[in-house]
């Protein structure tokens, strides 16, 4: 391959905001950033004073915006990198970032197929990048998001999704809660079911592109349900993360 090596770039934190009690959106300024597609990820490298360094991959949350790149990081208890990014890193601090990476779990605004996004927990992050890229492109492709979280306080981007930005016309959002629901919520707390994706997804006849992201068990379940509902496995793109017992 004659492709050029993707460079490590210095990335300065220029803003940060809490998404939940344990998740934080980090806005990095990365001079020379080449832009990215919605759904791609970056590698983040941290280096300690003694020269020890370690890397992790994080999905990009934002649409392309010059040299600004947003990540949303969930604090993994006992993690080596995420507690630093969520609790220690301050505006003005620097890390190194390499990317963008990944050419499969991506959505391009030029695509005209309907889109079904199915996110579990922090699996919403790359899906949000797709929603934001659609908004940025003033896209009219119909989008549906099915977003499963433990309880309402665990939602990322809640205000932004609630705002009904006119540019988000044609985006439907359905929340599923697995542990606790708001008062008067019609659906009892519980894990994703066939009925959920049958109600809030697209009929398979519409041939939507499906993007499923979340913990392994969630993704396995969601993908199996989509196949059972008649969706072509080749149009179901998945991104799994987190440990698994298997």
């Amino acid at each position: 391959m004659s492709a050029q090596r993707t460079a490590w770039r210095d990335a300065r934190l220029v803003a940060a905001r809490a998404e939940t009690g344990a998740a934080r959106t980090l806005v990095f300024k990365i001079p020379g950033w080449p832009g990215h597609l919605a759904g791609q990820h970056v590698d983040v490298r941290l280096t300690a004073e003694d020269g020890y360094s370690t890397q992790r991959s994080y999905s990009i949350a934002s649409a392309t915006d010059g040299d600004l790149v947003e990540l949303t990081v969930q604090n993994v208890p006992d993690g080596e990198v995420s507690p630093y990014l969520v609790e220690v890193l301050e505006v003005g601090d620097e890390v190194e970032i390499r990317g963008p990476v990944g050419g499969w779990f991506v959505w391009r605004p030029s695509s005209e197929r309907p889109v079904l996004l199915v996110g579990g927990g922090s699996g919403i992050v790359p899906l949000m990048a797709m929603i934001r890229a659609r908004r940025q492109a003033a896209g009219r492709t119909p989008f549906r998001l099915v977003y499963s979280v433990r309880e309402p306080g665990q939602r990322f981007y809640a205000g932004e999704l609630r705002r009904h930005d006119p540019a988000d016309a044609g985006l439907d959002v359905a929340y599923l809660y697995t542990r606790a629901v708001p008062d008067g919520w019609p659906r009892p707390a519980g894990r994703l079911t066939v009925a959920d994706l049958n109600t809030h997804g697209w009929p398979a006849d519409f041939e939507p592109d499906c993007y499923v992201c979340g913990p392994t068990g969630f993704v396995e379940t969601a993908a199996d349900i989509l196949i059972a509902l008649g969706h072509d496995p080749r149009r179901i793109r998945t991104e799994r993360f987190g440990p698994t017992g298997g």
Binding site: D43, R45, L46, A48, Y52, S53, T54, Q55, R56, E80, W104, F105, T216, E220, A223, D224, L226, I227, P233, R234, I236, R237, T238, R240, F241, G242, P243, T244, G245, G246
Partner: peptide, 27 residues
């Protein structure tokens, strides 16, 4: 970072896990 485990030599940029994560592009 984590305490260094000098006894383990990993390829550059890798970290040690005891889980067995799953990665696949589709169902």
């Amino acid at each position: 970072g984590r305490p260094r485990d000098e006894g383990v030599k990993l390829p550059p940029g890798q970290y040690l896990t005891h889980d067995f994560p799953v990665l696949s592009a589709g169902p």
